[in-house]
Design a protein around this nucleic acid. Sequence first.
DNA 1: TTGAAAGCGGTACCAT
DNA 2: ATGGTACCGCTTTCAA
Lengths: 344, 344
Amino acid sequence: MVQIPNTPPSASPAPRSVPTSADVARLAGVSRATVSYVLNNTSAVRISEPTRRRVHEAARELGYVPHAAARSLRAGHSRMVLMPAPAIPIGPLYGRFINELQWALGRLDYTVVQYGTVAVQGDEAARAWAELRPVAVIVPGAGLGPQGVTVLKRSGARAVVTLGPASVEGAHTLLMDQAAVGHAAAAHLHSRGRRRIGVVVPEEAGLETFSRPRLDGARDALRGTGAAITELPLAYTEEAAARLAARWGDLGLDAVFTYNDEYAMLLMSALQDTGVRIPEDTAVIGADDLMLGRLLRPRLSTVHIELPSGRDLAALVDRAVRNPGAAPETHRVLGASVVPREST
Amino acid sequence: MVQIPNTPPSASPAPRSVPTSADVARLAGVSRATVSYVLNNTSAVRISEPTRRRVHEAARELGYVPHAAARSLRAGHSRMVLMPAPAIPIGPLYGRFINELQWALGRLDYTVVQYGTVAVQGDEAARAWAELRPVAVIVPGAGLGPQGVTVLKRSGARAVVTLGPASVEGAHTLLMDQAAVGHAAAAHLHSRGRRRIGVVVPEEAGLETFSRPRLDGARDALRGTGAAITELPLAYTEEAAARLAARWGDLGLDAVFTYNDEYAMLLMSALQDTGVRIPEDTAVIGADDLMLGRLLRPRLSTVHIELPSGRDLAALVDRAVRNPGAAPETHRVLGASVVPREST
DNA sequence: TTGAAAGCGGTACCAT
DNA sequence: ATGGTACCGCTTTCAA
């Protein structure tokens, strides 16, 4: 029986295997060493112009692209800066920060790679990152312990920087104290004469890292003042907000800190629908100072958050890479200042 | 003159170099081959239990972590799926999509890596990606040409998928036709009896890829109907919105499509401040169907956008990787449907 | 059951 | 001005 090939030779030209520098050398009629010299413009070695041309020509013809893994294997190091990709879509604030950071590190000739952390936990994740032998690792949030730092350093990471609520043994830390946000918000409400203060706590998973400290900060600000805090769990849906608004009278609150501006908008909308006057009946303050707060009516008071510039963090990383022996720095980098507008 | 070393030996213990499988072998008193067998649980080979224990013990003691680059160099392939990181912070819609995709690819045992494309252009970028020898590349937006696809495939990428406005020769394409969004919006306004329609075009750099097709789609929907379109350049600031609102009467528009919900909120707020009644004087429709549209008063009509599920794209990638010979598929994946609410 | 050795794709030293 | 070659860390035949 005659077999008819299902892919005729003409249709799928036998997939030439990926060209290597040896292929380039062969085609140009030189050695692999010469190819390497030419393509890397090695200054310690002089190659004649005709040879250079032949090598470039051959590389172009074959579509040669060097193999990064082979190169860094040989070199013994890379300039890869690894960041775990955030597990949950984080706000525009953080997005901008990341972008600026990427740009700044790029300027310093590092390659930034965001690694898809697929639900791997702390020290488990650290191992996975270590396999890539990054020169530096930047870890947002909690979740990396001293163990993880050790693993990373042991496998050659010259800098480990965490961005989070607490400093980690052995790592540089950009201390982002979310409690300061809650503190500022609560203090502001108190200064406005409010005494029965609600604090919205999002029910969405993954937000506890932010919401818990913000709540604690608010508690802290009011300690000993006689003002009382009521925790208000709230899912990010209209229905949940309406339900909360429906029992607003029973709660007897004269102010609410809504975790952030988006929850503020959600709750304000529901409160206004049920006739609660803002700020007369209830003052509302959000956080993050997003554009939407300026667009709400009444205009939303909020806590403006000052993140470090991406350039600064890039500089810290670069310093740490150049001098891995230096003692870990801890910088308190989260500035929280109230922007009073019409809603309080 | 006596030099005092600035770092005394005791302070920075000579940084032991990174342990390799050879170190593990030495410590365990076995060969590197055995180490590899044990740590990879190679089923084709049986290693005695005492030996296994000794190897694991040694690996643990040294903090051994395998070198991914060396491994994939030897193996001749990796399971890395590369995506360029978006240059500008893109909305929550897209963020969720990416996250779902990462998760789904993770389930299929791929490692997703977002590569920080630092202002490198199309085919230049393709070369940089090719150096990493990813098994698949997913490229959102335009910017990758047929040239780039060739480079990637030549260097071993078994699947190249683009997510964008047009299909690219040689690559699988998820066709996201933004024009459909504008088309739906304009058609809706027309059906509501509006004839003098403004279309907001954001001035922010990097948004043209979306805004241009949305505008064109709106134009297309009204072609031959006698309705007229006015292009409205608008920066995302309160001042710009106020300026636009101030000359609203002169423009004589009875409706406006605002590019997306966020610009809708910006413009609605400015219009309401100047006494324009929505929808009586001017109908407003946004796009993206964000939560904020539901919270605005009047509630914002919008164009709901249906993206493909991350799982679907992951499945496409996996299929393409398993069968690189197959003809590139092009799927039209962007569903646009109007959600009429109170603002139109 | 274990070990010796080849080789993946580059780079850089040492000769010629 | 070039070429030969060892080596980076790991996997995987092939032998013993």
